[in-house]
Computed example of a mutant assay.
Amino acid sequence: MSYILGYDPETLREKVNPAQCQERLDEIGEQRSLPALLERVWLLKVLGRADDALVISEQSVRVARMAGTRKDLLRARILHASVQQVRGAYAAAEQELGTCAEEAEGHGWAGIAAFAYQHRGKVHFDEGSLESARHDFKRALFLRQDAGAPDDQLESTLLAIDTVERRRAAESVAS
Rank of each mutant, 00 (worst) to 15 (best):
Y90Q: 02
K45L: 14
L43S: 01
R24A: 07
E10V: 14
A64D: 00
F115C: 05
R70L: 10
A113Q: 03
D162N: 15
Q153W: 13
A149D: 10
R167H: 05
K138H: 02
S156N: 15
M1F: 00
K138C: 06
E165L: 11
F137M: 06
R62A: 06
G106Y: 03
G106L: 11
L154D: 13
Q59F: 04
S132R: 13
L5E: 09
L43R: 04
R70C: 05
V16Y: 12
W42A: 02
I56C: 05
F115V: 01
S156Y: 14
A50D: 08
E96F: 00
R168M: 15
V86E: 13
H124P: 10
R75N: 08
L158I: 03
H107K: 07
L38S: 07
W42D: 00
I161F: 12
A101K: 01
L159N: 15
D152P: 14
A76T: 01
L5F: 01
L47A: 08
Q153V: 07
R49D: 05
G148F: 11
H107M: 11
S33T: 09
E27V: 03
G48F: 15
A104M: 00
A169T: 01
K138V: 05
S172Y: 07
A76N: 08
L38K: 13
V123D: 02
D8V: 07
F115S: 08
M66Q: 14
T11D: 10
I112V: 09
R139Q: 07
E27F: 01
G6I: 06
Y7Q: 14
Q85P: 06
Q22N: 11
V46R: 05
A104S: 01
L12A: 09
L79C: 10
L44T: 04
Q31D: 12
Q31K: 09
K71W: 06
E102W: 04
L73T: 02
S129N: 13
E14Q: 14
E127R: 15
R120H: 04
K138I: 04
V61R: 03
A133G: 09
V16R: 12
